[in-house]
Design a binder for these strands. Structure first.
Length: 441
RNA sequence: GCGGGGAUAGCCUAGCGGUAGGGCGACGGCCUGCUAAGCCGUUAUCCGAAAGGAUUCGAGGGUUCGAAUCCCUCUCCCCGCGCCA
């Protein structure tokens, strides 16, 4: 949520922000107008309440002295009617103002490139040596801006979709029977590979001072609204029927809400949490995309980085969580590029967002595996999380980033590390997985 | 699920129809050669340029001129009993 004072004092900043996001700048003026009406009526209301409080005190004193107070009593009754009338106006106007305010997206960081959609995202860093099927070379050179090492391969690797079904490492057909499309039964070596990935990512973060947390997988409306934006409720969030509970789409949600309504001591910052949880997503609006396999699914597991920090440190920590995620993909020997998400593709909550996209040799393109956001004070405001500072309370900044989303990372491993008659397991996973190869032939 | 006890500002606690009091902690100041002690002040939210005012006793209703206090509904926590992976 935005600071109402920012809208009052610098409305042109917020209008500019709306334009960059291809949204209507007039929303700002609607809020300003409602805010003005609210404040006017609030002043009237408070004057009436003050009058009433003084009368009530008079009655109290008169009764103590044994005097009659029936005329004051009637006056208060009359005041109560006026108060109720104005209260209704104040509440109604404030409700309208806040409902618009809650829909306002975060102010974009100055580093966010302007753009209409995902085609305008800006790749700026490249790592690793990609295996590129000859037919994909033009696309690869375009998407890697020619700044990435590669080797040409003469055969396209098996797609993860074909491979997992053929060698019984997952069963999406039967999952479709019992749960619908975009679900899967994970089987055999992939089950352990998933656990190995989670342990590897968790240990990587614990070493860097993150506290491991397994959060609740459901949240109340209040907590969920604070952690995410309203459009998510239609597009991604599952609701539990007849309960005030929503399935989390990422452990970012319960980790953001973890300190809801709290005041954090300044000296305990930064708070660094490594969340581990399943993620549930409706994937509405993704019809026809990645319909097979386990790349885009309604349920997957993820290890997530989440940080609460002092506002002046969030830029530093944004780079840090990105670096942590990059280290993981480097150790997994998965070639990737990092992109700076543009204003049209960034979503309402983030102020700045980086994605890591791994080169997928079977698909012949870069695919998103990590998303790292600096949310600034947007979630903290919505969740009423403050920090007690030397000179008063303030809102902390929050940041989140994927460490490992298991399904997508397994897809990346299957496509990149196919080697003869199996899949090579990258070094850091071996001690968790127990072997260095998944034999498939 | 049943019975009993709770929820008061960052924390603890009093108040149980008549302007929410005390303690701890934190911060600022005074006093000290320094530290401690001691003393004074500040320590939730909102409106207001300020003076000031309004709100706030788990949440929501009700009774009353007036509710932390009385009544109703709900949430959460603690102690027993029951059920249970």
């Amino acid at each position: 949520m935005l600071d109402i004072n920012l809208i009052r004092n610098n409305p042109e900043v917020v209008r500019e922000n709306q334009k960059k996001r291809n949204l209507d700048p007039a929303d700002v003026d609607k809020i300003l107008e409602l805010d003005r009406i609210w404040r006017e009526n609030l002043q009237v209301l408070e004057r009436l309440r003050n009058l009433k409080n003084r009368k009530v005190l008079e009655i109290s004193l008169k009764l103590k002295k044994g005097e009659d107070a029936s005329s004051e009593r009637d006056e208060v009754k009359k005041l109560n009617d006026d108060i109720e009338r104005v209260e209704n106006i104040v509440e109604e106007v404030k409700r309208k103002r806040d409902s618009l305010l809650w829909k306002m997206p975060n102010i974009l960081d100055e580093d966010v490139p302007y753009g209409k959609d995902e085609n305008d995202n800006v790749p700026f860093r490249f790592w690793g040596r990609a295996k590129v099927f000859r037919e994909d070379l033009d696309n690869f050179l375009r998407d890697s801006k020619g700044s990435m090492e590669y080797e040409i391969i003469e055969d396209r690797p098996l797609s993860h979709t074909d491979l997992i079904e053929k060698y019984d490492l997952a069963d999406t057909l039967r999952a479709g029977k019992v749960a619908g499309s975009r679900f899967y039964y994970l089987k055999r070596d992939l089950v352990k590979l998933e656990l190995a990935l989670e342990m590897f990512a968790l240990d990587h973060l614990v070493e860097k001072g993150f506290i491991p947390v397994e959060p609740p997988f459901m949240l109340t409306r209040r907590a969920m609204e604070g952690a995410t934006d309203l459009s998510s409720f239609e597009e991604t969030i599952y609701k539990v029927e007849n309960e005030d509970l929503y399935l989390i789409a990422t452990s970012e949600h319960p980790l953001a809400a973890y300190h809801m309504d709290e005041i954090i001591e300044e000296n305990s910052l930064p708070l660094k949490y490594a969340g581990i949880s399943p993620c549930f997503r409706k994937e509405a609006g993704a019809h026809g995309k990645d319909t097979k396999g386990i790349f885009r699914v309604h349920q997957f597991n993820k290890v997530e980085q989440f940080i609460y920090c002092h506002p002046e440190e969030s830029r530093k920590f944004h780079e840090e969580i990105l670096r942590n995620a990059e280290e993981i993909y480097q150790k997994l020997e998965l070639p990737y590029r990092v992109i700076n998400i543009c204003s049209g593709d960034i979503g309402n909550v983030a102020s700045k967002k980086y994605d890591i996209e791994v080169w997928m040799p079977a698909q012949g393109k870069f695919r998103e595996v990590v998303s790292a956001s600096n949310v600034k004070d947007y979630q903290a405001r919505r969740l009423n999380i403050r920090v007690r500072g030397r000179y008063g309370n303030y809102y902390p900044h929050t940041l989140n980033s994927t460490a490992v989303a298991t399904t997508r990372t397994m897809v990346a491993i299957i496509e990149n590390h196919q080697d003869g008659d199996g899949i090579r397991i990258p070094d850091p996973l071996v001690k968790y997985f127990g072997k260095d190869f998944i034999k498939i032939k």
